[in-house]
């Protein structure tokens, strides 16, 4: 190979490398969602982004695909809500807001879907009955 043809090839290199890099980037971003799966003799684990291992052996026996668990943001990614955030102040809620409402003999409680959406779940009580509210 002479120097001239080497230069010609080198000048074309970005056109070869760029699609390759884009391809790798595409694959890496599309792999992010699914979980890393570990198996030993008896058990199947998925590993979240904090490095925590979750045993999903029983879930797999029910038909769950270990690769189907996604994100794995870790236990502390969301702060669940509780009744300390329940208030009698019903101002500043827009009329058309969607809410989940529940009543028992003594009173009524509502949870805005907007708030539930951000926190995923509220550990609440209806009278003396403990409930989990999620949407």
């Amino acid at each position: 190979m002479n120097r001239k043809s080497f230069a010609a090839i080198a000048s074309k290199l970005p056109f070869v490398l760029l699609p390759l890099l884009l391809g790798v980037l595409y694959l890496s971003t599309h792999e992010i969602g699914s979980s890393a799966v570990l198996k030993d003799a008896e058990k199947i684990y998925i590993v979240d982004r904090t490095g925590e291992r979750w045993d999903v052996t029983q879930a797999v026996s029910l038909g769950f695909d270990p690769k189907g668990f996604e994100y794995g943001l870790g236990k502390n990614a969301f702060t669940p809500l509780d009744d300390s955030m329940l208030t009698e102040d019903t101002t500043d809620i827009s009329k058309n807001s969607h809410v989940i409402g529940v009543t028992d003999g003594s009173g009524a409680q509502a949870y805005t879907i907007e708030r539930l959406w951000a926190h995923e779940v509220a550990n609440s009580n209806i009278g003396s009955k403990p409930v989990a509210v999620s949407y």
Partner: peptide, 25 residues
């Protein structure tokens, strides 16, 4: 953990029916 009876509705309807409601907002 069984489903507990509840209602999905809009705030204006809920507050009309239950003016003394508490809310998590």
């Amino acid at each position: 953990l069984p489903v507990v009876d509840h209602e999905v509705t809009r705030w204006k309807k809920w507050i009309k029916k239950h003016p003394d409601t508490k809310v998590l907002k």
